[in-house]
Amino acid sequence: MDTHARNAKWSKGVPEMDVLSLAEQEIVCNKVAKQLFAICVTVVTLILIAIIAGMFEYPWLLDYMTDTANTTNQNLSTAHSQAGRAGGTIASLTHMLPVLAVMLIPTMAVFYIIKKPLLKRETKKLVEEKLAATPSTDDVLTSVYWEFSNQEYMSNDAFTLDIINYIENNKANWNPNGIAINSRKVCIV
């Protein structure tokens, strides 16, 4: 899966990411991927530590792990070809499956449970950083008066001329080359 496909897939259920550009979505997804990797490695490590501690506490768990290791080694040592080793691994899989399940199921659960909250948090951080870096636009386009109509304008110059001619004060307050709102989406009420 390439980064654009991952960005699209990860941002699907996160409406907060709709305001971000593709590059910003990639930044958020990369940060979250690194965080998820660190968290999942930590979870697997804690599970391994719990299994090892359990082997000291419960002799049956030590016997099970020893039996699993012996079965796997025996299946692999009797196979003398690459196909035989693959068969030995598959034969040993029934012994290894419970151990893999104990390690993978909680790790995958943690991954899917915290992925969206992490994406939302990182998106919020990025948006707040952008807002902090952007000058305040509380008084954007104040004292510019205009009555909307169905007329279509073929150029910015024609629209600017009509705005300036609409009311004399518009000439001093209208800046057609300035950025009024630095956003991909705007809701005008």
Rank of each mutant, 00 (worst) to 15 (best):
Y64D: 05
G54W: 09
D18V: 10
N175F: 15
Y153A: 08
W60S: 12
I39L: 15
A158I: 00
N182V: 07
S21E: 02
V127N: 11
V144E: 11
R121Q: 06
I39N: 13
A5W: 11
V140M: 08
G178W: 04
T89I: 00
E16V: 00
K130P: 00
I47R: 01
A91W: 08
N150R: 14
A101F: 13
L22I: 00
G87H: 11
K185F: 15
A33V: 05
D63L: 10
I105C: 03
E168K: 15
K171F: 12
L46R: 14
I27L: 15
M96S: 03
M65T: 03
K34L: 07
L61I: 12
A101R: 02
G84F: 03
A132N: 05
F56K: 12
A109T: 07
W146M: 03
D2Q: 04
V102H: 03
V99T: 13
I39W: 10
V110S: 00
A91F: 09
E122M: 01
N75H: 10
P15C: 03
I39P: 11
M65I: 01
K120Q: 09
A86W: 15
K12W: 14
L76P: 02
E57V: 09
M96L: 15
I179Y: 08
A79H: 03
L100R: 09
T142D: 13
S143R: 14
S136T: 07
D162R: 06
N170L: 14
K124P: 00
A109W: 12
M55E: 12
I114F: 14
N30D: 15
M154K: 09
K125N: 09
I49C: 06
A53R: 07
T71Y: 13
V28T: 02
I51F: 02
L100M: 04
E147W: 04
T71Q: 09
I105W: 11
L20G: 09
Y112H: 02
E128H: 06
C187L: 12
S136L: 07
A83Y: 13
A50C: 06
W60T: 11
W10Q: 11
T66C: 07
L161A: 13
I164P: 00
K124I: 05
H95E: 12
T42P: 00
E57N: 14
N175P: 01
T45W: 12
S21R: 03
A38H: 11
T42I: 06
N75S: 01
N173V: 04
H95M: 13
K120T: 07
P106I: 01
V19D: 05
L62C: 05
Y166I: 00
A158N: 08
T94E: 10
Y145P: 02
I49M: 08
D63F: 05
V127D: 12
S77N: 06
A133T: 08
L118H: 09
K9T: 06
T142K: 13
I181A: 09
K31C: 09
N70F: 05
K130G: 01
K116L: 10
M96E: 05
W60P: 04
E168A: 10
A132P: 01
M17E: 10
V99Q: 11
V144A: 13
S143K: 11
L118M: 15
L93K: 04
E122Y: 03
I179K: 10
L36P: 01
V14Y: 08
P117W: 10
E57S: 14
V140C: 14
N30T: 11
P106N: 11
W60I: 13
F56D: 04
L97G: 02
I90D: 01
S155Q: 06
G87T: 00
E16S: 07
K116G: 00
